[in-house]
Design a binder for these strands. Structure first.
Length: 316
DNA sequence: GAGTGTTTAATCCGCA
DNA sequence: TGCGGATTAAACACTC
């Protein structure tokens, strides 16, 4: 198997659509909402390809934000200076991605008036997400983990109580809280956050039997499990993201309990089902054993198992 | 002026 | 071949 250099994938275009990339960025934030500039930053940080031609792809990305109903705009509060609004995923877009993978969308998400799972009006959806963000932050605080870099006060958080026990289908907790079985018999959690960038082949091959290296801690904000499970998968471009996943959350838009799925042939690209702020060491531009492992933990890295107890309440 | 957001249009690509 | 989704480009308006 070829062992490309560390920069092998650096200049390759990721197999993800702008919608997927944007969704990743948003999902990676503790509050599940980001300003446009932070979305840009997320993408550029993790995908070197997008460090060039910024005018082009950023225009495309903005187009996607406006064009697709799956993204909703959350206005800043009057006391929150700054340009632009926050962007979040519509609560009802959980079924948008096929097999729970950002690599493939089932269909274009359109807001349905009859959607009973979550608010359909943008304003309602925004309020709903604000509630979600508030709850997440509360959960973080309760679990003793570090609060996100952006405090709740930075967002236009509403004060409406959120019905307990409910999480919309696309809630990060639901998307990632499913365990998938790898072709090699390894099981890993779909809650794995997306690596900082494409894992290199040598990363993948060394992840077969020992954990811990390739995949940063998962989100713990609202019940993510702390899993550094290593992944063994076929080589190839983006293979680290191409883990075949079985759709576990698409039943009528409802999230289903975690379940192992039969091994499937490796897909060309894996699943960043769960994204979080990954340590820079996972970037293709840096080695797997980069010193960043000792760097200060990112907010998401601090969100680990303590909050996992909150996870199960969502699924029913 | 720069950044942000919206809209329209053209083009390409994969799939049925 | 048609359709739908994704990408790209461009124009315009608005806000900071």
């Amino acid at each position: 198997m070829p062992r490309p250099g560390r920069n092998t994938y650096s200049d390759q275009k990721p197999p993800y659509s702008y919608i997927s990339l944007t969704a990743m960025a948003i999902q990676s934030s503790p509050e599940k909402m980001l300003p446009l500039s932070e979305i840009y930053k997320f993408i550029m940080d993790r995908f070197p390809y997008y460090r060039e031609n910024t005018q082009r792809w950023q225009n495309s990305l903005r187009h996607n934000l406006s064009f697709n109903d799956c993204f909703i705009k959350i206005p800043r509060r009057p006391d929150q200076p700054g340009k632009g609004s926050f962007w979040a995923l519509h609560p009802s877009c959980g079924d948008m991605f096929e097999n729970g993978s950002f690599l493939r969308r089932r269909k274009r998400f359109k807001v349905l008036k009859s959607d009973h799972l979550a608010p359909s009006k943008p304003a309602d959806a925004a309020q709903y997400l604000q509630q979600q963000a508030k709850l997440r932050l509360s959960a973080l605080a309760a679990s003793g983990t570090h609060l996100p870099q952006m405090p709740a006060a930075a967002y236009n958080l509403g004060g409406v109580a959120q019905p307990s026990g409910f999480k919309h289908p696309f809630a990060i907790e639901n998307i990632i809280a499913r365990e998938y079985k790898m072709p090699g018999g390894l099981a890993f959690s779909a809650m794995q956050p997306v690596p900082a960038a494409y894992p290199l082949p040598n990363q993948l091959t060394t992840m077969g039997s020992s954990l811990g290296t390739g995949w940063p801690h998962v989100y713990g904000s609202a019940g993510m499990i702390d899993s550094a499970t290593p992944i063994s998968m076929a080589s190839g471009d983006y293979s680290a993201y191409g883990v075949p996943l079985k759709p576990l959350c698409h039943a009528a838009g409802q999230t289903l309990p975690a379940a192992a799925v039969p091994a499937l042939p490796a897909l060309p690209a894996p699943i960043p089902t769960l994204l979080s702020n990954s340590p820079p060491s996972l970037s293709p531009t840096s080695s797997q054993t980069a010193t960043s492992q000792s760097s200060p933990a990112t907010p998401s890295e601090t969100l680990t198992s303590p909050a996992s107890a909150l996870h199960s309440v969502a699924v029913h």
